[in-house]
Design a protein around this nucleic acid. Structure first.
Length: 296
DNA sequence: AATTCCATCAACCGCCTTACT
DNA sequence: TAGTAAGGCGGTTGATGGAAT
């Protein structure tokens, strides 16, 4: 007997999310939260597995998610953190505000790993310890970073992490290493158009999820088969957005605005706000907002 | 212009961990 | 303490678009 499936696979939908599903999920989470992911699909009227809902929210729909290319600083941080933590993507993601484990994992496999390998092939492996992979052996060369002191001890080479050894001791050490944490308010965040060509995919910043959401905008949005949460749509209808009493342009050109307006205690709120504006833009409603702004 | 190959990334799968009873 | 449910995580896959031929 195998493990019981988390949900009835025959009764749930799989594959790319439609704009209507996104809207329904967002509407529900914003108004009710996500106390129970497993129960959420039913309550929200989604024919999706709870896990799928959670993943969709965390990796794409959450206002905390920073879209756009990875800045050189972020990439360097990933390299450093991977050197220390191995494939602990969620731990790495926790150090990169706005970035998800999935995104980091993809970037690592599609860009950074190759880059390191390439760098490796161009350099002489003069001092490589046998237990280090070639790419790991060059991480310090690329980043100019000296690993955490613990990492230099014989008991904790990088490759141990890579192969699943516990990283808890490391985590504790790393937690106190502020140099390995990208401040969400830091100007190090770069806008997509400022990205170096070597950064991750060039299209991500401007056409978010054009494989799933955007491609469905043509027909499904107009046929959203559910009753939208009124509070949620009221927010979208409210074009006189303000933050702390200050009028704010509702259409952001980049997520950096989320950072600009993010006082620590209000960061999440603003992020949610930005997201609403973004969603409206994605759903083709930006004209409404822009026109409203111009009228002011 | 058509076809093939490759890179990218969203999403799925299954295992592990944690919280609760 | 053991059993169970749910959340979380990392590995992997498949669809897609663009580049190369």
């Amino acid at each position: 007997m195998g493990r019981a499936p988390c949900c009835d696979k025959a009764a749930v939908k799989s594959g790319p999310w439609t704009a209507a599903e996104d809207a329904r999920l967002v509407s529900y989470v914003l108004s009710h939260g996500h106390g129970n992911w497993r129960a959420l699909p039913k309550q929200a009227g989604l024919l999706r597995c709870g896990k799928s809902c959670r993943l969709r929210w965390i990796n794409y729909l959450s206002p905390d998610v920073k879209r756009g290319n990875f800045s050189p600083e972020e990439e360097e941080a990933i390299i450093k953190l991977h050197d220390l933590l191995g494939n602990k993507w969620s731990k790495i993601a926790s150090r990169l505000p706005g970035r998800t484990d999935n995104e980091i994992k993809n970037v690592w496999h599609t860009h950074l790993k190759k880059r390191l390998r390439k760098h490796d092939s161009m350099s002489e492996p003069s001092n490589n310890s046998p237990q280090f992979t070639s790419s790991e052996a060059n991480i310090n060369q690329v980043s100019g970073h000296v690993s955490h002191p613990d990492n230099l001890s014989g008991s904790f080479p990088s490759c141990e992490n890579e192969h699943g050894a516990s990283s808890m001791d490391h985590e504790t050490a790393i937690t106190s290493d502020s140099s390995l944490f990208i401040d969400s308010k830091s100007s190090n965040w770069s806008e997509p158009e400022k990205q170096s060509p070597s950064s991750s995919s060039s299209s991500e910043g401007e056409s978010v999820n054009d494989k799933s959401t955007t491609q469905n905008l043509s027909g499904e949005v107009g046929e959203i088969p559910f009753e939208p949460n009124l509070d949620f749509w009221d927010l979208l209808d409210d074009v006189s957005f303000t933050y702390s009493g200050v009028p704010v342009s509702p259409v952001f050109e980049s997520l950096d605005h989320q950072v600009i307006f993010a006082e620590e205690e209000n960061k999440r709120e603003v992020g949610s706000w930005w997201w609403l504006a973004y969603l409206e833009s994605e759903l083709g409603l930006e004209a409404t907002i822009l026109n409203a702004n111009q009228d002011e």
